[in-house]
Design a protein around this nucleic acid. Sequence first.
DNA 1: ATGACTTGTGTCAGTCTGTGACAGGAAGGT
DNA 2: ACCTTCCTGTCACAGACTGACACAAGTCAT
Lengths: 205, 205
Amino acid sequence: MGLRERKKEKTRLAILDAALDLFVEQGYESTTIEQIAGVVDISPRTFFRYFTGKDHVALLFHDHGEAILLETFASRPADEPPFTSLMHGMRAVMQDLLDSTPEDTARFLKLRRLLDDNPQLVGRSVARGAETERRLTEAVAARRGVAAEEDLLSHLIVAFATSAMRVGFECPMTEVSMPAIARRMAATIELAERSLRPGWDVEAG
Amino acid sequence: MGLRERKKEKTRLAILDAALDLFVEQGYESTTIEQIAGVVDISPRTFFRYFTGKDHVALLFHDHGEAILLETFASRPADEPPFTSLMHGMRAVMQDLLDSTPEDTARFLKLRRLLDDNPQLVGRSVARGAETERRLTEAVAARRGVAAEEDLLSHLIVAFATSAMRVGFECPMTEVSMPAIARRMAATIELAERSLRPGWDVEAG
DNA sequence: ATGACTTGTGTCAGTCTGTGACAGGAAGGT
DNA sequence: ACCTTCCTGTCACAGACTGACACAAGTCAT
């Protein structure tokens, strides 16, 4: 890896950390791009060359999680019930978080607390994740051997799975720590699987 | 109703119709507030006195639907399983649409087509509806006799219900018409209820 | 190392959304 | 008519973005 790329990664992390600290200190809304750029000592224009906008910074882990979800689903056996595969994806996202460096863990916890204080961000994450959801639905429909546009169940499977994901990750909680989040995540998966009728996700459209 | 209020309602509808037509004609993103204000012959400032922003216009029916959902849930018997009540709410929202005037139906169908062309708007609707979702969760938890912060199931019930709502209303469809939407809505409710294990939403937290 | 080539950065200018403050005018009640 | 209330336009402004351009820093030859 050349000097150029190392420098870029360094700037990227500098922006991320500066933004996170400012968000926590003075709130998400009242933090401006100019302030973030000021701390990192770059021009505001450069900020937008690293992130598409303010919410991109705040929802970085969502993008990452969605990528893992897509990969995991694709790598699961084709004869596994789709919802089961998606729950495996959910576990994979959680595991990835547990395996990350202490620095990344700290960043994630800051973001997590940010979501509690700014519920609008949860909504924005859905907006940002719409494309992922569409692709997941395509993948589920493909596995079910039907066209996504004509199969309500494929949509419902993905909708229920992402719902569970949001309940596990984003609902306010008293103690914000990795073990607590992992516990809630496991409980949510269990609850969701228990609530659904066995075989519901392998029926004909 | 005085002249003042009639005038306001007229302006409100004029803005709505002008915005809708512009959105359909030239796309949501490329339509500016200034253009909308120009057609209605008001100042851009006044636009913001009727609507909080561009997406407020595009998601007007969502607000309305959410209000009906909350009312319906509150009016259902306290011993009815919460998810069942929410599905009744979903039917009530649909029924309200079917009962609306031809003008409102036409507006709704325009908005519905807008959602197909601009998937980002679906996400924004979730962002806008976050507060409603929170209040629904409170209501469900109250009926279950538990505190919302400590009951995952209350969150999951609401999340599943709103998921079903989004699948029924917002998934792209080939034929966009009231009968087609009503049919899909009914099918989604049926599918959701069939997919869940009976009694799942009345268990202890 | 010196050159040419690529790529990241700052500056500048501009658009669009959204908001607060103020003044004038239309509607409502007496 | 009169006073109050509410609505509206104008002005001024902040903040999120974007395109264009010139310059500097990194990269890769010879």
